[in-house]
Amino acid sequence: MLQILGMIGANMLSLPGILGLAFGMMTRKWGFAALGGALIGLLEALLFAKFDFSQIDAIEMVISILIGIIACLVGCAIRRKGVLI
């Protein structure tokens, strides 16, 4: 359980969380944001496995994709709420 929480926290403070939020803030389209977030999460899993698919841990990949999607959607919500034009 603690391992999973650690993984979630680590993803929030690295590429999926931070880049995901920044990417989400660039669009008003929910679908595009979610797709971008998933790609960022996947990219991170690949980067950590040095682009070797056999080295990717399934749970780590799922968590990084989920965090990427959530961060992008939050970014998108910030964009919709905070940019008035």
Partner: peptide
């Protein structure tokens, strides 16, 4: 040493 693994280790160390 890697950022992501380090943050994870720090969170797990709460135990």
């Amino acid at each position: 040493k890697e950022w992501q693994h380090k943050v994870q280790a720090k969170i797990v160390a709460v135990k």
